[in-house]
Design a protein around this nucleic acid. Structure first.
Lengths: 224, 224
DNA sequence: CGCAGCGTTGATATGGATCAACAGAAGTGG
DNA sequence: CCACTTCTGTTGATCCATATCAACGCTGCG
């Protein structure tokens, strides 16, 4: 990022915001005037059916952008919920178009992020559409593991893992009971252990094999 | 679109390309030097597991962009297959970055398209993760119906519908047999009829209700 | 004529949902 | 400090939506 771009982004920034676990950062169909970047904590994008069924579309980790869709369409088609307490960098939405005009290469980076986020959703769609329960859970864990590792949030194969089993179930299109049993089976096979919000991946290789995990999404990312 | 932008896009265009039904326009992990716009015909983006299970991520209709991901990541994470015979407008990929630099607002439109395409995938993820078979088929049909209507490709509630049942099954994460039985049931209920690649939607309202269809994706779109 | 691709239909199997009950942990108010 | 509630996780029993298997029919084509 050039110095000029950096200065531009700084000027773009309004401040920071702190939100409690469980609250909605963005509600479905809402349009607020800000875009965010997740600075610390975990969040989840999700959509719901009117009878309450819920599907988590993707997990957001530090560095991810929140509210791009809302910025482009003037209202979000999905909601975003804080999974843990969360701190966000806040940017002004009105100046979003300005970014494309004045710093075209930053505009390109935004497109990069949009495409990247689509790639993750696609990957989740493949999982939910065509993998069985064990494969789904294995895939989910490996892919989160790798993302966290890239952020240097894994040490000794162990990471913070603040998701409830209900949330895992909603991400994978499974019932909570079956999710529980599947997790337990992976534990019995010594592939993972999960206690008090700490996850250890003992045997990534076997998980990859079970999940038919295909590395997939590029690791390089623009700084924004 | 300003005249200047129009001229730019024209200069960007390399030519046209015609492809037969069934061929891959873009293969998984391939990187070719072009980006396309679907000018006529239907196509499908899909991903596969190594044992052959296949998930269709989205149906592409005339006007949709093909290969954006490939342009941004230098290789595609999904493949794109022509469902019918297809004609494509071909653009040069190397000049893609140039577009952002010289015509920032076209860059914004590209981001718009990326976000739009993500919204469709998200919608499909919700479908596959949380709707049952009837709901899935109903949702799939209504949403295609509406997209085709916006393109003025529906007359008398009837449209060309070139998908095989295998393809519908792969889009919805169902088996082909169950897809067949579900379609049949919708037919018996007088909601649709589907014969020789022609689909008639007799009762959109009931389908919407079954699917809990939520209009969702914006209809305005930039010209590109 | 024979084959290949697609659709159709019934019989059977099963993965995962649903139901029900309970256990532990953490918070809350008295 | 103790009841009480709420949230999350655990486990077994049962049910059912969907997958799988197996045949067959139709159509178009070389």
């Amino acid at each position: 990022m050039t110095e000029e771009e950096l200065r531009f982004v700084e000027g773009f920034k309004v401040g920071e915001r702190y939100m409690r676990a469980g609250t909605d950062i963005i509600a479905e169909n809402e349009h607020d005037q800000y875009i965010y970047t997740l600075y610390a904590g975990w969040a989840a994008r999700y959509r719901t059916l009117d009878d309450g069924r819920k599907q988590i579309l993707g997990i957001l980790l530090p560095g991810d952008m929140v509210g791009l869709q809302a910025a482009i369409f003037h209202e979000a088609l999905h909601a975003v919920q804080a999974i843990t307490d969360v701190t966000l960098c806040v940017f002004q939405k009105e100046r979003f178009v300005e970014l494309f005009r004045k710093q075209p290469m930053l505009g390109f980076d935004v497109t990069w992020l949009a495409a990247h986020s689509e790639a993750i959703v696609e990957s989740n769609l493949l999982t939910v559409g065509r993998r069985n329960a064990v494969e789904r859970v294995a895939h989910f864990i490996v892919s989160l593991h790798d993302r966290l590792e890239a952020l240097d949030l894994v040490s000794e194969k162990t990471m913070r893992f603040p998701l409830t089993q209900q949330q895992i179930a909603d991400a994978l299109g499974l019932s909570i009971v079956h999710t529980n049993k599947t997790l337990k089976r992976l534990g019995e096979r010594q592939l993972i252990s999960l206690h008090s919000r700490q996850l250890t991946v003992h045997d990534r290789a076997t998980l990859v094999e079970i999940a038919r995990y295909d590395d997939e999404v590029a690791k390089v990312r623009p700084m924004i």
